[in-house]
Design a protein around this nucleic acid. Structure first.
Length: 219
DNA sequence: TATAGGATTTGCT
DNA sequence: GCAAATCCTATAA
């Protein structure tokens, strides 16, 4: 009793799991409501994870920046699968993690862009090759590296414990992060649909992938 | 099989 | 602030 590992386990035992219905909705609603929720992986190496502080929604209709916009391919197949499953893609030799929304055949998802580190910081430091807490999980590819998320997780059901080392849940009410205001901004890095403000952030977080005051980079 | 480009990150200036 | 590094994926031949 009282070890860090046991404390972490107790914490997560009190978690409130998601129901499939939560993901069978407009990705903009899901993206907003995932802020403050907990994401983790538990592998042979250990437990790593944190609190979601930044997300982006990608819509099936009228969103040219969405990977599903040009139809289903081998790479984005998971996006057209059931909601609540992982969609992991590779870009610039790095992985990015999404959660599929709505339902089969639709093609929408929420990209997880940043976490506030919370569990397994030493393992995350090891995987990332750096110790600055702000650089561990503040970016879609950074958090995948820190949590050990790869294409191997593509298509995994997040709502089927025991079939995956990925975990996602609402925190117990007494453990909620002070949310602060939720702001929406244009999405980062997209080469089209700049006008759609489907990036959602906890405005007070120190762990965003891009500060709210930073000038948008050339895209 | 070859080629171009991307929902990124990093280091250097 | 800027540009290089990085490698998988889609597309065309």
């Amino acid at each position: 009793m009282g070890t860090m590992a046991e404390h972490e386990r107790d914490e997560r035992d009190a978690l409130r799991p998601f129901h499939r219905r939560f993901f069978q909705r407009d990705p903009r609603s899901v993206a907003r409501e995932l802020l403050g929720c907990w994401l983790w992986t538990e592998t042979i190496e250990g437990l790593t994870g944190g609190v979601i502080v930044e997300t982006e929604a990608y819509l099936a209709e009228g969103d040219s920046a969405c990977h599903a916009a040009r139809g289903e391919t081998r790479g984005n197949r998971a996006m057209f699968g059931p909601s609540g499953h992982a969609y992991v893609y590779v870009i610039h030799a790095r992985h990015c993690f999404n959660i599929v929304t709505e339902g089969i055949g639709i093609g929408s998802a929420v990209l997880i862009r940043a976490l506030e580190p919370r569990w397994g910081c030493s393992l995350m430091e090891q995987r990332r090759g750096r110790t600055n807490a702000k650089e561990l999980t503040s970016g879609p590819a950074r958090l995948c590296e820190a949590l050990g998320i790869t294409r191997d997780h593509d298509g995994r059901d997040l709502l089927a414990p025991g079939t995956t080392d990925l975990g996602l849940a609402k925190p117990p009410s007494h453990q909620r992060l002070e949310l602060g205001p939720i702001l929406s901004t244009p999405r980062i890095g997209v080469t089209s649909a700049h006008e759609l403000e489907y990036r959602y952030v906890l405005a007070g977080s120190r762990y965003l992938s891009r500060s709210l005051t930073a000038k948008p980079r050339k895209q």
